[in-house]
Simulated scan of single mutants.
Amino acid sequence: MRADARRNHERLVAEARAAFAEHGTEASLEDIARRAGVGIGTLYRHFPSRDALLEALLRERFDTLAAQAREAPATRDALLSWTRTLTESSTAYRGLVTAFLTTLRDESSALYASCKAMNAAASDLLARTQKAGEIRPDLEPSEFLTLTYGIAWADEQVAAPPRRDRLLALLFDGLRPS
Score class of each variant (00 low, 15 high):
T98G: 06
S142H: 15
D138I: 03
Y112F: 12
E143N: 14
S114G: 13
L126R: 00
N119S: 11
L101M: 13
L96G: 04
L145C: 12
R128V: 11
T98E: 08
E140Y: 08
A121S: 14
R136P: 02
A117N: 13
V97M: 02
L126E: 00
L139R: 05
A113R: 12
T103A: 14
L104P: 01
Y149T: 02
A122N: 04
L139M: 09
T98I: 11
L126A: 01
L139Q: 05
W153E: 07
R105G: 09
K131R: 15
S123W: 06
S123M: 14
K131S: 15
I135Y: 06
I135W: 06
E134H: 05
P137E: 15
K116C: 07
R136W: 04
Y112H: 11
P141S: 10
L126W: 01
L147K: 06
L101Y: 06
D138F: 08
S142D: 15
K116Q: 14
G133E: 10
E143D: 15
L126M: 07
G133R: 13
F100V: 01
T146A: 15
V97K: 03
D106G: 06
A117D: 10
A99C: 10
G133K: 08
S114H: 09
A120E: 08
S108I: 07
A132T: 11
D106A: 06
D106V: 03
G150M: 00
T129N: 09
D106R: 07
A113M: 13
P141G: 07
T146S: 15
A117T: 08
E134S: 07
T102M: 05
E140W: 13
E107A: 08
Y149D: 03
